[in-house]
Design a protein around this nucleic acid. Structure first.
Lengths: 111, 111
DNA sequence: CTATGATGCCTACCTTCTCTAGGTATCGAT
DNA sequence: ATCGATACCTAGAGAAGGTAGGCATCATAG
């Protein structure tokens, strides 16, 4: 990991993947690029984190996968948000907001 | 864990403990209460998470500990932020801010 | 033409972290 | 006398992300 890139906190990756897919169907490698690009290079998801995560997420029914050929003529495995996945994204975003709020409250405290 | 309390994300506990101690010396059990109170009951740190965390944090030199008797006459182990701990708190807060910002950027994206 | 880097997929193992679930002891209130 | 809160601790489990490898294709640079 490059020095200027922060490690993800556990529990944030699923949300990022689901969010990336909410913008449209995409293959694994593309998800990494989309997250990196949208975050202004601040977030870098490792392949070794992504593929197992995609597998987990697919098992849970939040995404569906199919092999396809894209523009460049190369084959890739495309993932698509399911209805349950969209629901899950909302849930995770709400949890994230709650956590951010709670931590902000603690940090507001002054000595 | 109560239903209305969210599990912490891994990596946030150290920051919360250091922040709690930045408001003044405190013993372990009190740290849990302070975090719960400051977060409006949204964050509940389990004892089984706290004590190992305090041990780790002490090993890293971010806090110093001493046994003492407090008002109620009971003995307790009081923890105090060290200079390195204060520095570490700043670092972790900056990382947290970066992460929150990066995730906000990703979430801003519209399909 | 060949070497290299980017694209694209995957797995095994490691490490870290938090939680669950136990244990112990003291104290105040019922 | 019992029970809940206070106060400390540990062992083990589970989850998740990273590191480090492997493999194949393609475009580009030398």
């Amino acid at each position: 990991m490059a020095k200027d890139k922060a490690d993800l906190l556990q529990g944030t990756l699923d949300m990022l993947i689901l969010k990336a897919l909410s913008l449209g169907e995409l293959h694994g490698y593309g998800i990494i690029q989309r997250i990196r690009q949208l975050s202004d290079e601040m977030l870098n998801v490792e392949q070794g984190s992504l593929y197992p995560a995609l597998y987990r997420i697919e098992q849970k029914g939040w995404v569906s996968a199919r092999w396809d050929v894209h523009d460049t003529g190369r084959e890739a495995k495309f993932y698509k948000l399911t209805r349950a996945g969209r629901k899950q994204l909302e849930t995770q975003e709400a949890s994230w907001d709650r956590l951010v709020l709670a931590i902000a409250k603690v940090r507001q405290a002054t000595a």
